[in-house]
Structures are given as C-alpha cells and as structure tokens.
Simulated scan of single mutants.
Amino acid sequence: MRLHNPRAVADAALRRVRRPLVGESGRLMLIAADHTARGALSVRGDPLAMADRGELLRRLVAALGRPGVDGVLGTPDVVEDLLLLGALDGKVVFGSMNRGGLQGSVFELDDRFTAYDARSVVEYGLDGGKMLCRIDPSDPSTVATLESCGRAVSALARAGRAAMIEPFIAYREGAALRNDLSTAAVIRSVSVAAGLGATSAYTWLKLPVVDEMERVMAATTLPALLLGGDPAGAQDETYADWQKALAVEGVRGLVVGRALLYPPDGDVEAAVDTAASLVAGSAPKAGES
C-alpha cells in the first residue's frame, strides 16, 4: 500500500468512524503501542520482544477487538498500520508526540517532538496527543522538554484535543536514566505536569502505580490513566495493584501496552479481558459521581 498508494493512509484516516473520547462510564481502557519508536523493544528481559512488527500488529488487532477496549496510543507508523487494517473504527486514538529521547542514549532527557504534532493530530482525526515529560533537576536538557510539552499542551487545547502527559522525576544511575517511583517524586511530577501549557482544560495525566496513590491523586484535579510499563513480577500481583489504584478518586482507567500485549502465557485476549474487567469494575454505579 505504501509503495503503490501512499495516499491510502490519509484516506483511511478521513474515513475512520470516530466516537466521543469518554463514554457514560467515564472510564477509558487504552492499549499503548508507542514504545518501539523510542527504541524500547524489550519485554521481561527479552531485548527484541517487540521487534517483529507483524507479530506486534497481530497482538494489537486482537487486543483492540476485545470488549471494553476503547482505543490505542501509538506513533504514526503503528497508527497508520492499524488504520490500513481497519482496526480503529469506533476507537479512541491518541498520537504519541515526543519520541526523540531514545532509550539508553546520552540525549535521552532532551526529548524532542519527532512524531505527531498538534496540527497532524487534528489533520488525521485523532482524539489527542501524548507526551513523555521526564524531569531531572540536575540535567539542563529538562527545561527544553518542559517548554516543548507546554507548547504542545497549548496547541492541542486550541484545537480542542486532549493532551496526555506522562511525567516522571528522573535521575542518572551511571549511564542509565531511572524514574523515581517514590510517592513524593510522583506527587512532584504531577504538580509540575498539571501547570504546563496555557490551559489545563484538556489535560490528562498518565501515571505509574505507586504506593499511596490516594496521596498522588490528591495532588491534582486532572483525570488520570494508569500506565503499565515493562512488566515485572507475577501477573496476578500486577492486576491486584491496578485494581487497588483504579478505585482511587480521579483515576479514570488504564493505558497499558507490553503487560497485556506480551503476557507470560502468551494469551493476549485473556490478559486484555482481565484488565478491561478491572476498568469496568472501577466505574461508579448509577447515582454515584
């Protein structure tokens, strides 16, 4: 298709059947698929687990076809593959924006916007844009990322599109960049992210599950989705952590990739169904706010 009819990508985007960002439940269940553009291909210690694009797409199509899955978060290459496969009708689609901070690079914190921008999010009929915002107080590159994220939030809001910010306080451990997942650090990152841009009216947060999520969510009035990350430990323990965090006020759902697309037993459908049931079970009952 790209060889003989590249215009088909834009045509598929224009034909895509769209839906409201959030339904009556007020919950969202999204599949994350933007890892590869940042060079993050590993799952559970396998450094090339996500390297086979055909296999990744097979798993994504299977996940998107399950009940309770609202949509996907991806870079243009993945989103366009899914568009051409007809897998995104009636789904929420977030475009991943800054992938320039390649995993393991010396410039990882200088997270350039190398994928979608606000204009292309609108042109391709996407529902919002997502940005990674890592904050290392000891690295001067942080300020450029903060400025870029602030500009992106403002531009998306002007277009009436949601901005999903994934903030972390980060630090160097030798050559490796680590995220500080202490409760205090996540609270600080949330506080910084909420203030980015000229308005917070369209801003969502994408947050890790940490201890004392009640304190984390008390630090903001913005809606939040929980991220999965590179899975570690038993799957049942992960589900239990998600279930507990989903019950916290302000948490609106999940945006998870590797933990569901590459489960230990290989059963993508079962993993996605379990996660979707947790999101559905966290929705307030009739009459509750």
Rank of each mutant, 00 (worst) to 15 (best):
D81P: 01
E55F: 02
G150C: 06
L48D: 14
S141P: 05
L56E: 13
V69S: 02
T75H: 12
L56A: 12
G86K: 07
L73G: 13
S141N: 14
K91I: 12
G104K: 06
F94H: 04
P140S: 08
G125V: 03
S148P: 00
G129A: 07
L146R: 06
V106Y: 15
D139T: 05
R58K: 10
L57Y: 10
R119Y: 13
G150S: 06
A62F: 00
F94I: 08
L64E: 04
T75I: 09
F94S: 03
L56G: 04
E108A: 12
D110L: 09
G90T: 03
Q103M: 12
G101C: 02
D110T: 02
P137T: 03
D127Y: 12
S138K: 11
S120I: 00
G125A: 01
E123G: 08
D70C: 08
M97N: 01
D136S: 04
D52W: 13
L64V: 13
A63I: 08
K130V: 01
F94P: 00
S141A: 15
S138W: 07
L57V: 13
D139S: 08
V72S: 06
K91T: 11
A115Q: 15
R134E: 04
V92H: 07
G95Q: 14
P140I: 03
M131D: 02
A87N: 03
R119M: 10
A51L: 11
S105K: 02
C133T: 15
N98E: 13
T142R: 06
G54R: 10
G129S: 09
A87D: 02
V69F: 04
G125C: 03
A115S: 14
P67C: 01
T75M: 09
K130Q: 10
G74K: 02
E147V: 10
L102D: 12
R99Y: 14
L64T: 10
L57S: 04
G150W: 05
G128I: 02
L84F: 11
G95C: 05
G104P: 00
D110S: 09
T142P: 03
R134W: 09
I135W: 11
G65H: 04
G90I: 00
R59M: 03
E80Q: 15
L73I: 07
D81I: 02
S138D: 15
G68F: 00
V92M: 06
D52P: 07
F107H: 15
V78C: 07
D117Q: 04
G101K: 01
G150F: 06
V122D: 14
S141V: 00
R53M: 08
V69N: 01
V78R: 05
V121F: 15
A87I: 05
A144P: 10
E123C: 06
